[in-house]
Design a protein around this nucleic acid. Structure first.
Length: 480
RNA sequence: GCGCUGCUAGCUCAAUGGUAGAGCAGUUCCCUCUUAAGGAAAAGGUUGCAGGUUCAAGUCCUGCGCAGCGCACCA
């Protein structure tokens, strides 16, 4: 039983103490990582019995041990990978070997020794000194099959990292993508800002917010559902080019593409419109793929995605027509509801024609938008913060970007007319953010705005089909 | 919220309604170039939880919990 396994380890811990070895040790200075050693000596030819002149020191977790009586091979894992170590009684001595005998899989040790190549060709550290660093009281998952149970992988993500190397790669990729986004935008003169996450009015999107309470102020606050309205205040302020990359929170269902907290990039560019923002988005994602993955063709699920420019740009009603053979522009609510039924799309919850058509778009069109595609010019009713088309007040200058059937970005020419903005808020029926309207009344220059779901972008880059695979600690119910 | 599937040893997996098994890990012993090292032995279980049907339940039924997937929700 598990308790017996812990008891065994506790016993060894006490035996180490009795030997004068601290089971939860102190500092150790590795000269190399496992990967450093492979990089430095990987190409080197060693003669029989030859070893490196220098000694290296490496620290890590013991992943695997192959004992041979008075000698042993083991694999030590650090952040960079694994390196084999070779322990011999006649080299580290009686005392050192006794310490080795108390080492379990999962323990942290530091070793000092020279590099050599085994007869089978593996680069190995011949251990001259072994420092015990930390006892692991619980066993590791299985050495060959690793940890597969999805629930344990997410609840105890550290175990997932320890036994599944590809998981580490996904989060390393995520870090690179976010780093590159900053590099790209900083390089174009954008300023990164941090706006409030605690909002008095949760605006900028139509999602349900999380509610909390500030004791000293004695008032309700909401976790933000989008940073949009604050970023636009900064455009009023004259910042001209700003972005924020951080968490937003939406109190809605959890699925393979929704986590209650998620990372969004929002970018605002004064004097630009949605066409400029499309160029910016295309450049950013294409370059990010090239910089982080080294290629512009990527595999996502069953498809190969080609991120090479130019990306398709198609008006909303046009692409609907392309996939359904129906012209929804002139249709009324009754007709569109009938067509929805024909197409087997459930529109029972939809209150008007635009919502029905949007359902049809999401169910019929969106899953087929595999290659990068900008869908442009949406109905005004579903886009209260976007500027209308100059030649058609029913449509707005807005685009959504789809890659691999996933909605990756949402953007528009920002509505900067405070009178029109107030009217749109009133039509929506919710709380009006008077402070935001007042900001617009002071004058916001024409502005192009963009939101990118960073988690979803990383999903596409990493070729994983669940958002939980790109979020370190996805939200789960309590275990008990 | 609804539906489907899953939950068996620390991990990975077996088990036509008929004594719950294996591999790895762990324990003891042998072994100074192994690669999931090898050899020998012993040990390890409230089958997610609670009920029910049955002579007999891991297996069938009901409820509950958690998870995955789908649907709904999410402009």
């Amino acid at each position: 039983m598990e308790e017996d396994l812990i008891k065994e380890r506790k016993k060894k811990l006490e035996e180490l103490k009795a030997m004068g070895v601290e089971p939860f040790g102190r500092r150790f200075s590795p000269t190399h990582s496992a990967a450093d050693i492979i990089e430095k000596y990987g190409e080197k030819q060693f003669a029989e019995n030859e070893e490196s002149a220098e000694d290296v020191s490496v620290a890590g977790r013991i992943m695997l041990v192959r004992g041979h009586g008075k000698a042993a091979f083991a694999h030590l894992q650090d952040r960079s990978g694994k390196i084999q170590i070779y322990i011999r009684l006649d080299i580290i001595g009686e005392d050192g070997f006794k310490i080795y005998e108390k080492v379990d899989l999962g323990d942290f040790i530091g070793v000092v020794g020279s590099i050599f190549r085994t007869r089978t060709g593996e680069l190995t550290i011949k251990v001259k000194k072994l420092c015990f660093l930390t006892k692991a009281m619980r066993p590791l998952p299985e050495k060959w099959h690793g940890l597969k149970d999805v629930e344990t992988r997410f609840r105890q993500r550290y175990l997932d990292f320890i036994s599944n190397p590809e998981v580490r790669k996904i989060f390393s990729l995520r870090a690179k993508v976010i780093k590159y986004i900053r590099e790209f935008l900083d390089g174009k003169g954008y300023s990164e800002v941090e706006t409030p996450m605690l909002h008095q009015i949760a605006g900028g999107a139509a999602a349900k917010p999380f509610k909390t309470f500030h004791n000293a102020l004695g008032m309700d606050l909401y976790l933000r559902i989008a940073p949009e309205l604050y970023l636009k205040r900064l455009i009023v302020a004259g910042m001209e080019k700003v972005y924020e990359i951080n968490r937003s929170f939406r109190n809605e269902g959890i699925s393979t593409r929704h986590n209650p907290e998620f990372t969004m990039l929002e970018v605002y560019t004064a004097y630009a419109d949605y066409n400029d923002v499309m160029d910016l988005t295309e450049g950013l994602i294409k370059d990010a793929a090239e910089k982080t993955l080294g290629r512009k063709k990527i595999i996502f699920g069953e498809n190969e995605l080609n991120l090479e420019s130019p990306w398709k740009r198609t008006p909303y009603y046009e692409i609907l027509k392309e996939f359904t053979q129906k012209d929804f522009i002139k249709m009324n609510e009754e007709e569109s509801r009938r067509y929805a039924k024909e197409l087997n799309v459930n529109v029972d919850e939809c209150k008007n024609k635009d919502e029905i058509v949007n359902q049809i778009f999401e169910k019929i069109v969106q899953p087929k938008l595999i290659q990068p595609a900008f869908v442009i010019d949406y109905p005004v009713s579903t886009s209260p913060l976007a500027k209308s088309k100059p030649d058609n007040p029913d449509l707005v200058e807005r685009f959504e970007l789809f890659i691999g059937g996933e909605e990756i970005a949402n953007a528009y020419s920002e509505l900067n007319d405070p009178i029109e903005q107030r009217k749109r808020f009133e039509e929506q029926g919710g709380t009006i953010d008077e402070d935001f309207v007042r900001a617009l009344e002071h004058g916001m220059p024409p502005t192009g705005g963009l939101g990118i779901g960073v988690d979803r972008l990383v999903m596409v880059f990493a070729n994983v089909l669940s958002i939980r695979e790109v979020i370190l600690f996805p939200q789960l119910k309590p275990e008990k």
